[in-house]
Amino acid sequence: MTSDPAQDALVADLHALGRTVPTVSPAATATITDAVLARLASAPAPAYRPGRSLLARARAAIAGRRRAAAAVVVALLVALLATPPVRAAVADWFGFGGVRVRIDPGPYPSHAPPPPPARVDGDLGNAHAVLGFAPLVPIALGAPNAVEVSADGRLVSLSWTGEPDGMLRLDQWDANLDGLFAKTARGAQFTTVGQDFALWFDSPHEVVLLAPDGTKRTESARLAGHTLIWETSTATLRLEGDLTLERAVQIAESARPWVEPSPS
């Protein structure tokens, strides 16, 4: 292993230390197995209604979560599309840094319109003050064309136009917020941005903003195209636009906290 006998002894002791960790009892393993299966199980009730059963499923899943005591918002995962119930039976959902994702086979339109630009009513300094952390700006994109702070101060959106990527939108919010967005998508792919966990949506999907009480803001519902979501230590970010996964990750990895320019 190493050429240093003292270090070999250290390694041997570390292995031994690892073996002193209490193992999980078969009973605990069974409990985990049952809980996981219960969370995966769809609810094919005889009088199946997608909205209700998904909501019930979300509640059950959240009840099992570690932060059940916190005021976890039950995201409304109702399909925005009239998905045939039979297809919905294979749907799954999971949460991710304030995003609730429902996997549903669709159908979806084959093309999504470009993301809406941010409305210009804020600057990055203002965004910093509202969010409580410095907004991240990808070096690969430079200064945004527009900055928008949501009315409730939970969300900052930046947008860029022009070459080479077309219309791009970057939303970011405090990583601790529960249920800010709900998405319904055919599938999502796990990937990474730097060392951070990320999700890639490579096909058009539904996205809707959730109010703090967990109700969906129907006026915000829209069809989104390629989207990358990733988490940093402070924020969850969502990049949307006509991008390949490689380009999206490249942009994401270039994101740096915005620094107030010195007055000079």
Partner: peptide
């Protein structure tokens, strides 16, 4: 609890 969540997410991510 973490492991439970992880298995659920892993399942959801099997496509990837």
């Amino acid at each position: 609890d973490v492991v439970q969540d992880a298995f659920v997410k892993a399942y959801a991510g099997l496509r990837g």
